[in-house]
Amino acid sequence: MTEDTGARADAVRALESQFGELIGQFRRLISEAAHRISPGMLPGAYKLFTTIVRRESITSSALAELLMLDKGQISRTVRELETLGLIQRTPDPSDGRSSLLSATPQGLERLEAARRPQERGLHESLAEWELDDIHRLTALLHALTTGTRPTE
């Protein structure tokens, strides 16, 4: 192992360790946000809901494929989100056998309110950061998640 290879391995291990810390913190934030939307809501239901919000409208099948979940789990969680008034179904104009899932106005309001504390926390954490550093971190994370080389 060359010195450069060893240094790279050490750097990757340090990054992996920090990701572990970040994931733990992220899980806590997701649990708290889910609870703010509806006491007892599980993080998985929150993830499904926020995915529907991000996609604006999506079928249950596409949601199952995207999140790599079985259709039974998706169906149960969709019913829970509908019962809570967070999402609605509308006929899919391209497939009469299917429905599109989308957030209700009430769901969007509750999500915005649930996210406010974590957004405030992120703003506070980044208050002393240079704007260029925030943009650079965003670009680096995007490159990592897409498997592409970071751009300058």
Score class of each variant (00 low, 15 high):
residue 84 L to R: 05
residue 115 R to F: 06
residue 25 Q to K: 14
residue 70 D to I: 07
residue 16 E to M: 05
residue 107 G to T: 12
residue 94 S to M: 02
residue 35 H to A: 11
residue 29 L to F: 06
residue 100 L to W: 01
residue 140 L to G: 06
residue 120 R to Q: 01
residue 32 E to V: 08
residue 122 L to Q: 03
residue 128 E to L: 03
residue 133 D to Q: 05
residue 84 L to A: 06
residue 59 T to E: 00
residue 83 T to Q: 08
residue 51 T to A: 07
residue 66 L to W: 10
residue 36 R to F: 11
residue 56 E to Q: 14
residue 79 R to W: 13
residue 63 L to Q: 07
residue 135 H to E: 11
residue 79 R to C: 01
residue 19 F to M: 07
residue 49 F to G: 08
residue 30 I to H: 09
residue 96 G to F: 07
residue 74 I to E: 02
residue 26 F to I: 04
residue 79 R to V: 05
residue 54 R to S: 11
residue 17 S to C: 03
residue 33 A to V: 09
residue 111 L to G: 06
residue 17 S to Y: 14
residue 119 E to Q: 02
residue 127 A to K: 03
residue 37 I to L: 15
residue 99 S to L: 05
residue 84 L to G: 00
residue 92 D to A: 01
residue 119 E to P: 00
residue 103 A to I: 08
residue 55 R to S: 05
residue 129 W to E: 03
residue 25 Q to S: 12
residue 123 H to S: 01
residue 116 R to W: 03
residue 26 F to A: 11
residue 65 E to L: 10
residue 120 R to G: 01
residue 19 F to C: 04
residue 136 R to G: 06
residue 75 S to T: 14
residue 101 L to K: 04
residue 75 S to Q: 14
residue 104 T to Q: 06
residue 72 G to E: 14
residue 132 D to C: 03
residue 108 L to G: 12
residue 31 S to A: 15
residue 106 Q to A: 15
residue 14 A to Y: 02
residue 136 R to S: 10
residue 140 L to C: 11
residue 65 E to H: 08
residue 46 Y to F: 15
residue 36 R to M: 12
residue 103 A to R: 05
residue 97 R to A: 11
residue 35 H to K: 09
residue 106 Q to D: 15
residue 91 P to I: 14
residue 126 L to E: 08
residue 142 H to P: 00
residue 15 L to E: 12
residue 60 S to N: 04
residue 25 Q to E: 15
residue 80 E to T: 12
residue 103 A to K: 10
residue 61 S to W: 03
residue 47 K to A: 13
residue 117 P to W: 02
residue 118 Q to I: 00
residue 43 P to N: 09
residue 22 L to V: 13
residue 99 S to K: 13
residue 87 I to P: 05
residue 113 A to D: 14
residue 135 H to C: 01
residue 102 S to W: 06
residue 113 A to E: 15
residue 67 L to F: 04
residue 45 A to M: 10
residue 48 L to A: 08
residue 113 A to L: 15
residue 75 S to R: 15
residue 44 G to M: 12
residue 84 L to I: 00
residue 40 G to Q: 11
residue 24 G to C: 08
residue 39 P to H: 13
residue 37 I to F: 13
residue 61 S to P: 02
residue 42 L to N: 11
residue 31 S to N: 12
residue 90 T to Y: 04
residue 31 S to L: 13
residue 91 P to N: 11
residue 94 S to G: 00
residue 23 I to P: 03
residue 37 I to V: 15
residue 82 E to N: 04
residue 46 Y to G: 00
residue 27 R to L: 12
residue 113 A to M: 11
residue 98 S to H: 04
residue 41 M to C: 09
residue 97 R to G: 08
residue 68 M to T: 09
residue 72 G to C: 02
residue 24 G to F: 13
residue 65 E to I: 05
residue 41 M to P: 11
residue 105 P to N: 06
residue 94 S to D: 03
residue 127 A to N: 05
residue 145 T to C: 12
residue 88 Q to N: 06
residue 80 E to G: 03
residue 107 G to P: 11
residue 44 G to Y: 10
residue 80 E to S: 10
residue 136 R to W: 14
residue 132 D to H: 13
residue 15 L to M: 13
residue 135 H to G: 00
residue 87 I to C: 03
residue 40 G to S: 10
residue 94 S to P: 01
residue 19 F to L: 14
residue 91 P to S: 06
residue 89 R to N: 05
residue 86 L to M: 11
residue 33 A to C: 10
residue 113 A to N: 13
residue 69 L to K: 09
residue 94 S to F: 00
